[in-house]
């Protein structure tokens, strides 16, 4: 017992305080999201717990009834799905080819593609905003669908390259010997095995889309076309009027499912992310 404590104790001492600090905002959001107005704005109440009439789902109801929040969630889902599709179509073949077919210069091209992931939206949003206007896409979700793959494709290609490297080449060679073409071997042997890796790419690509803020506020200004990341800070905060309860609910609703997915796919993400670099 004592030996166990000595072994595990230090880990708790580090992880405990960090977990409290990093997760505290979510506790605070949850408390606020489910409070009544009377509870929230009474300075006599201890704010860390629910007081009179709380918890309540009034704020969540307000969010879905009185604001365009649901529309923003929908927009985000549409853009996310389309961007994921485009990203996979471009980065699946590229990631595979970089891992398998192209030998020594494959690594260099891989790194070069990855480096473009580091060119940030904050450097490109000004010229992009002009291009989007020229194309007549301003205020339309299509502008985001067009531009988001510029960072999701490099990121996903890198991840997929990492995953494909972990799959032994002998597996496809066996299929090739059996007379399958390379593309066929790809479709019937390689992709099914790498399905967990592909799913990881889907999750993280989607979350990049949900996260994106700079392009979303630059290209789109009508409230019905907003994504959730841009809609909540711009449309729900008007001047000095803050609807804190609904705002906190709006923050938590996308965060929770994403956090659960991250946890499930984290180990695979690590494998793919470092697979390209540390192998």
């Amino acid at each position: 017992m004592l030996a166990k404590l000595r072994e595990q104790g230090p880990a708790y001492l580090v992880v405990g305080p960090f977990a409290i600090v990093l997760a505290f905002p979510f506790y605070w959001m949850l408390m606020t999201a489910l409070k009544t107005e009377g509870d929230l704005y009474n300075p006599a109440n201890v704010p860390f717990k629910w007081n009179q009439d709380s918890p309540t789902f009034d704020n969540v109801e307000f969010l879905f009834r009185e604001t365009e929040y649901l529309q923003w969630l929908e927009n985000t889902a549409i853009v996310g799905a389309l961007v994921v599709a485009i990203t996979l179509a471009l980065s699946l073949p590229a990631g595979y080819a970089l891992a398998r077919l192209s030998g020594s210069w494959g690594q260099s091209v891989g790194v070069a593609i990855f480096l473009t992931y580091l060119v940030p939206p904050t450097l490109l949003f000004l010229p992009m905003s002009r291009v989007i206007t020229e194309l007549g896409l301003q205020d339309r979700l299509a502008s985001l669908v067009l531009v988001y793959p510029s960072f999701t494709v490099p990121f996903s290609t890198w991840l997929l390259m990492g995953f494909f490297k972990t799959i032994p080449a002998e597996l496809e060679d066996a299929a090739l010997v059996d007379g399958a073409s390379r593309l066929r071997a790809l479709a019937s042997v390689v992709f099914p095995i790498s399905l967990p890796g592909i799913l990881t790419v889907v999750i993280f690509t989607f979350s990049l889309v949900v996260n994106e803020f700079v392009y979303a506020i630059t290209f789109i200004s009508s409230s019905t076309e907003r994504t959730v990341s841009a809609g909540v800070p711009t449309e729900l905060i008007r001047g000095d009027v803050f609807y804190w309860g609904p705002l906190m609910a709006a923050t938590l609703i996308p965060a929770i499912p994403l956090a659960l997915l991250y946890n499930v796919f984290l180990d695979r993400f690590i494998a793919g992310f470092t697979g390209g670099a540390f192998r």
């Binding site: 977990a19 979510f26 984290l266």
Partner: peptide, 22 residues
């Protein structure tokens, strides 16, 4: 613990920052 520590990364940052405004 791992779940709690990963929470900030999984949250869309624009929304997380609104939490901090409050």
């Amino acid at each position: 613990f791992r779940f709690l520590i990963l929470l900030p990364w999984a949250t869309p940052i624009a929304l997380g920052t609104i939490g901090f405004l409050w």
